[in-house]
Design a protein around this nucleic acid. Structure first.
Lengths: 238, 238
DNA sequence: ATAATTGGTATTTTCGAAAAATGGTCGCGG
DNA sequence: CCGCGACCATTTTTCGAAAATACCAATTAT
């Protein structure tokens, strides 16, 4: 009595109940994090508008959110730019990340239950699977990046602080952009797999001190690596 | 030869080079922090639009920034609401604030130079002046609030981390809203003046440990006070 | 009586054009 | 030759109308 060819497919990207502004925000964020939109690049309206297929206003709303995220800067009435990538900013973000991450990790280990342990182990497992069937450099592969992000998220997911978690997310994205920046110049990644396994083990065995030491080392060594290989593309504060 | 009645006054609120969206953002933030826009209240477009004298789009841009600040929440296509004020959120924000504030204060004390010491002392002095010529409850007076904010900002101003400072600012505002919430019910404030003086002294004498202990106590006791007097107006997470 | 459907109204969301502002260029005067 | 100022083109910012969506109430079917 009705159309069988069903509905389900119509809204391809605009998930139910979400605005297109929010969607554009996500897509723009991805472009910036992966450095397809380069640091300090001017974000002109007309090109972006037509490339995303939205209006000025909607685009502007998306850009405004990203300003708050620290991925975009707005200057007076002279438009928007991708946030500059500078050595000082990378160091600043890294230090902030270490501070927050240590706190949420400690709390997550203290408060996490069985489901949390399982989530951490599953996330690591998924990450491992992806790494197995992958040859090239991982930082550029979207599914690796997604699994990597989710592993780290799972570690701190039980901390119980929505505020700190949202700050953590934002800082993670800002770091990720620097990783992308160095990806082109960097040789295939060193042994992160072992570090992830060690982190998981420390976490599920509730060894806070060990986990904290590992996460700090993990974060800082990543930054050191980025600095080593991307030093010359890190511009001055522009 | 020209009009003498001068120019200077024309753009009363839109400071040179700023957009009206940014201006509306600030004004809305103020309305929310002072609870003239109440927690969980629906932010309807038409009333706000006409009251601020701007268009839908501009208003929307302002609301979007405030979402990132945690003062406004957006739900699907059902518009914007002032962020609910809940006990859990207040506790969460307080803990996050303590974590960040301790770190930036420690660094500020370590790195601050002569100008920093002077800035801290001046800020305290200005705050004192305002408190002198003031009888009633301070939390409602805009100039006290501004001077108080600037004193605390001056303390951490030399920390050298723009990232942490901007997070700190946002958390400060979120706390401030809870203070406003309790202001109506709370008796005239207890002795903050002494606490501020002690903080200043610990800071300029470079006694990190003491300063940190004081700031944590300062923040937590403020929160305890808010909870005591505003417990019944703190809604469930809606 | 309750649940589901339909239609109408209120609100939000998106659009593209009008207005404001910026940056650069060309001509004029020192 | 160089600096200054006014015009023009480009780009951003703002607006109000149009489209999409949710909300509410009444009506019908189970």
């Amino acid at each position: 009595m009705e159309t069988l060819v069903n509905i389900q497919v119509v809204k391809s990207r605009k998930e139910f109940g979400n605005t297109v502004a929010a969607d554009v925000t996500h897509r723009l964020r991805e472009e910036i994090i992966t450095c397809r939109l380069k640091p300090s690049e001017a974000l002109k309206f007309e090109p972006l508008r037509s490339s995303f297929g939205v209006s000025f206003t909607t685009l502007r709303e998306a850009l405004t959110s990203l300003v708050a995220d620290g991925l975009v800067v707005m200057e007076g009435q002279r438009g928007f730019h991708v946030a500059p990538a500078t050595l000082e900013d990378l160091i600043d973000v890294t230090n902030a990340r270490v501070l927050i991450e240590i706190d949420v990790l400690r709390q997550s280990i203290a408060k996490g239950g069985d489901e949390w342990e399982i989530a951490v182990m599953s996330a690591l497992h998924r990450l491992g699977k992806i790494e197995e069937r992958m040859s090239g450099s991982p930082a550029e592969d979207p599914s690796w990046r997604s699994a990597h992000k989710e592993f780290h998220q799972s570690l701190v997911g039980a901390c119980g602080s929505p505020t700190l978690l949202s700050i953590r997310d934002s800082l993670y994205d800002r770091s990720e952009r620097y990783r992308s920046l160095s990806a082109a110049y960097r040789p295939v990644s060193r042994d992160k797999t072992g570090e992830h396994r060690a982190l998981m083990l420390a976490a599920v065995s509730r060894d806070s001190d060990q986990a904290i030491a590992l996460i700090e080392k993990h974060i800082r060594s990543t930054t050191d690596n980025v600095i080593r290989y991307a030093k010359d593309v890190l511009g001055p504060v522009k």
